[in-house]
Design a protein around this nucleic acid. Structure first.
Lengths: 336, 336
DNA sequence: ATGAAAGCGCTAACAA
DNA sequence: TTGTTAGCGCTTTCAT
């Protein structure tokens, strides 16, 4: 590896001068500059970002904590974050909570040891929040995305109006004549209902029609296609089965569709299904999935801006919840 | 941030001693050791990995270059790499080629500037290979995964027997009585057929039955659900349409299924579809997708081992291609 | 068993 | 315009 010293020696100048040429700071004579640049070329000099980070106290890297990369929602989110951060001149060090919280804790600490300038968390579930809170004792800027809670938090966070999401889903189903709605939600590793406010939104819609959510129709599973499938099996073999299912994530909704199909039910003729996330796949499943969509780019852009400002030492505050909207596709129809 | 100096001062010793305690090297008196450790606790000391990297010339981080994070295959692969690397004591810096090769080149170089110890590439398409070859002039260990080529390469790579994959798909369709098979493959940004050998495998199967692939039934699109959908539309509105479609990736296969459905065709009654990748989604689409499966953990474990050995300066060679196998699910049936 | 000194590659004061 | 000096936080000889 060539260092600035190598090219300094070659060009007959000092390391400082080379540094100045490279950074454009200070003032360097045209001739010297040309000579330095020549050797930079010739010796194929590449700056050592590690050394630069050490002295600057900044790495230009943000850490990204992702819930579950196998869930398309997070994978797509990760891609978006990377792209947005890139245009903001930042690189992203991605880390996934591989289910086990201990590992998550470890990875998060490791992120800090590697001197990331800030951390972005794209996951709203509670147990992870605990982990993060404990770590955010370090005064490293940290922004919490897709925040699921309702109560205000001391953490910098971007919330989504998931309650409205559940409400819109409910309204839509009710307008199609459905009165018996099953719900598939998910609990996190600590047993807390990770998507409580999504369900609450649905309940609000139901109660506006004088209906109550049948508690035997409220199931929880893993937030995955498999989890949705398992839960849907139970719902659909219920003595008094629902005519519609609201799953709090698209992944679970898709699993529910698979279950329905295996049980010989046709969607949307015999059963309507609504998801939440609008993963890219939602358009391609058969029939396409009615769901609640989130303007992810808007959310993530804001999150990154917040993080950047926070890194720059500015005083920043969490914005009000972003609203979500309903996308009607093929998986919902009139109540049979 | 507390440094070793802070705790050295507190404990009344030298930075060297602290370092020794922390690393377990050298020899330190029991009393001193305890005292140092006490202050490590008290002052909540966290080592600065950047500084350590600078001096050691190693970061303990490998770079991962991913083709397209929106493609579940790569997302799932990324999760697996991260997990496997973690158990090997490595962290992963993930970078995605966001379509544009210039950005890819930039990100790759950046990975190098950040002093990753090695690079893992999980993408077999040719244009990226060019980029990587140009960069691998640096003698940084680099392992190329899911290598698509047939000819031997100077790069360290793990190849898959994609030809066999195409062959198995073809054999399966032929055994079901299909004689007219459409193919959806994809070209990379430079116009090369990225999946040529997958198609070649299919052709081999056909020719064993005295059949030739109708070139008007060989289409290419983007390797995404949308790409598959577009291509399938063309195939299915062909004057003499195929009774079966082989898509060289699951994402495209799923898009093809969507197209079929929109055209009122029922799978597998009217049309059989075979994919390749066995993404987790393949089990959950309706009907579930018959596809070619890859033992990803085996491949990636081997890749990481190769990379590690290479980093350790060992002489390593590329293994023979990993074989793949057919998974028969619901999307294929007898020729109508 | 402990410490002094040097240095990884780079940048930032401050002088000259 | 250029050079000198010092130091980011840590490890590693080599002395003591």
């Amino acid at each position: 590896m060539t260092t600035i010293y190598d090219i300094a020696k070659a060009a007959g100048v000092t390391a400082t001068t080379v540094s100045n040429v490279l950074s454009g700071k200070g003032s360097v004579g045209a001739a010297t500059k040309a000579r330095v640049l020549k050797y930079v070329q010739e010796l194929d000099y590449q700056p050592n970002l590690i050394a630069r980070s050490l002295i600057k106290g900044r790495t230009g890297v943000i850490g990204l904590v992702v819930g579950d990369m196998n869930n398309p929602f997070y994978a797509e989110t990760t891609a978006a974050v990377e792209r947005l951060a890139y245009t903001a001149g930042l690189r992203v060090f991605t880390t996934t909570f591989s289910g086990e919280d201990q590992v998550g804790q470890k990875l998060l600490e490791d992120l800090i040891l590697r001197q990331v300038d800030g951390i972005l968390v794209t996951s709203g579930s509670w147990s992870e929040q605990q982990t993060i809170r404990s770590v955010s004792a370090m005064q490293l800027p940290i922004v919490y995305c897709f925040w699921e809670g309702t109560q205000p938090t001391s953490l910098l966070s971007i919330a989504l109006d998931f309650k409205q999401g559940g409400f819109l889903a409910g309204q839509h189903l009710l307008s199609l004549g459905h009165r018996r709605v099953g719900v598939i939600t998910c609990f996190d590793s600590e047993g807390n209902d990770a998507h409580g406010i999504r369900v609450a939104g649905l309940q609000t819609a139901l109660s506006q029609h004088g209906l109550l959510l049948d508690s035997t129709l409220l199931l929880n599973g893993q937030s995955s296609m498999e989890g949705g499938k398992v839960a849907a099996y139970k719902l659909l073999t219920h003595p008094d089965p629902p005519t519609a299912i609201f799953a709090t994530t698209d992944a679970m909704a898709i699993g529910a569709m698979t279950a329905a199909w295996e049980l010989g039910l046709q969607i949307p003729r015999d059963l309507s299904v609504v998801g939440l996330d609008d993963i890219s796949l939602a358009k391609y499943v058969v029939p396409s999935l009615t769901t609640i969509t989130i303007d992810r780019v808007a959310v993530l852009s804001h999150a990154i801006k917040l993080l950047l400002d926070s890194i720059d030492g500015q005083q920043v505050t969490s914005p009000p919840p972003f609203s979500v909207s309903l996308v009607i596709r093929g998986s919902t129809g009139r109540c049979p």
